[in-house]
Each structure stands twice: as structure tokens, then as C-alpha cells.
Simulated scan of single mutants.
Amino acid sequence: MTATTPRTESVGPPTLPPLAAQAERLATLGVLELAGLDAARVRDAVATVDLPGLLVVDRALAPASALAPLLRLGDRPGFVVEDMTDVDAFAPTEGLDVPDSPVYVVTAPDRGDDLGNWSPEEALPELAARGRSPMLLTEGMHWALQVPEVVERSFCYMTIGSRLRRANGTYDARTPAVWISLGTGRDGRERRGAPKVGWCWWRNRHTWLGFASGVDRVAVPLDA
């Protein structure tokens, strides 16, 4: 895909299953084991939460580099682009309220399709004006783990809640995103059609990338 790829019509992202089903899927995929979480405790905890949304494991327990190979589109596993070896260093931006909890829920997830062809620099204040919070990379990846079809050709998304802070306190110009590989360049032909974790420039626009966001992040308390 390129920045000039025309967008086709989309029916919108698929509906997320209930939290209990999401917990089961994370257990089946091995995410809970990866995070060192007891699946039974997570199941019991989400059963007490009467809240629709996206179930997320904290990035410190389930980093992006470990989640990427678990992504799937058809028979193609996900991957991180070769020039993003520092993917796990992309952290929540200043001002984001991320619960200090192993597991939490992102409410009202939205892919931001209407913001296609906006730059991250332009989209961030617009999301704030709408009362929305940009997703972290790992949140966007959890969404794709639950409903792989959310990563849809011509309707993929950036996750600008995660950025890399330089030693001098400024942000790296890269912003992470999740989209579909065309199997060109260093991706390799065997990865054509695979879900891809990569990056875009802060001031660049791409017609086929929206901006994933939610409204709130709510902790799911796990019993001791």
C-alpha cells in the first residue's frame, strides 16, 4: 500500500466478543501464560466486570515483540518490520492515563476510519476534542488478536498513544501502526497478506491508515 492507495467501502470494524470470550482467547493464544497470569483468575475477574470494550494485558507483561507473532490473517503470522528493533521501547505518551493493573479494558474502541489521510500530528488534537484517547500499540495489537478482521485492507490504523522518547526528552518522529504487508522489500514475498507492525512519520498522511482510539481505560482487579 502507498499513501495514494484509494480507499474502498468498509462496513466498519467487527464487533468485539464479550470480555469472558476475550479472556478465553487470550488464554488460548498463550498471552496470559506469556504474561505470567493465571487464566482462572483472569476469567473470574472479567466475570465481575459489566463493561463492554477491549480486554488488554499490560504492555510490561505482554510486549509488542511477543504479541506480533501471534497475530494472524488467514495463514499468515504477524511480524514487526526489521527497522523497528526498538518496538518495545515505544511507551505511553505523556498524559495518557493507563491503569496500574495487569489487565484492563479499553472502552468504545474505534478504528478512526474517518481520519484516514490525516497525519498523527493533526489527528491527536482531533481525538482529544472528541473526548477520545489514542490507543497504545499493544492495545491495537490486542484488538487484532481478538478480531483479526479489524486489520482490513485500505482500513488499517495507527496507534499514536505509543511513542519513543529520546534521551533529551523529545519524541522520536516515528509513530507505530498496524497494517497489512504487500510482501515487498524487506518484508519478503512469503509475508504478503500478513499483519504487519511498523511505523509512519509524525507529520505524514496515509489514506489507508486511521487512528485507533478508545474513551476510557478501566482496571480489571485480580484477586490475590
Rank of each mutant, 00 (worst) to 15 (best):
A3Y: 12
A3W: 12
A3M: 11
T4V: 01
P6Y: 01
R7E: 04
T8G: 15
E9G: 08
V11L: 14
G12A: 03
L16K: 07
L16Q: 05
P17A: 06
P17K: 10
A20E: 15
L26E: 06
L29C: 02
G30S: 13
V31R: 02
E33W: 01
A35E: 04
G36Y: 03
L37Y: 08
D38S: 14
A40E: 14
A45K: 14
V46E: 13
T48C: 11
L54C: 09
D58L: 05
D58F: 07
A60S: 15
S65R: 08
A66R: 13
L67N: 00
L67Y: 00
L70A: 04
R76M: 07
G78I: 04
F79Q: 02
V80C: 01
V81A: 04
E82D: 11
D83V: 10
D86F: 09
A89E: 14
E94S: 15
G95H: 04
V98C: 07
S101M: 06
P102A: 07
Y104D: 06
D110H: 09
D110T: 05
R111K: 04
G112I: 04
W118N: 06
S119W: 01
P120D: 03
E121F: 01
E122I: 02
P125I: 07
A129G: 05
R130G: 07
S133C: 10
S133W: 01
E139C: 01
G140F: 09
A144D: 02
V147A: 06
V147M: 02
P148L: 08
V150A: 10
V151H: 04
S154F: 11
T159W: 02
G161L: 08
L164F: 14
R166T: 07
D172W: 12
V178A: 09
T184K: 12
G185K: 03
G185N: 10
D187S: 14
G188T: 09
G193Y: 04
P195G: 00
P195V: 00
R203E: 12
W208R: 12
L209M: 02
L209N: 01
G210I: 03
G210N: 03
A212V: 07
D216K: 13
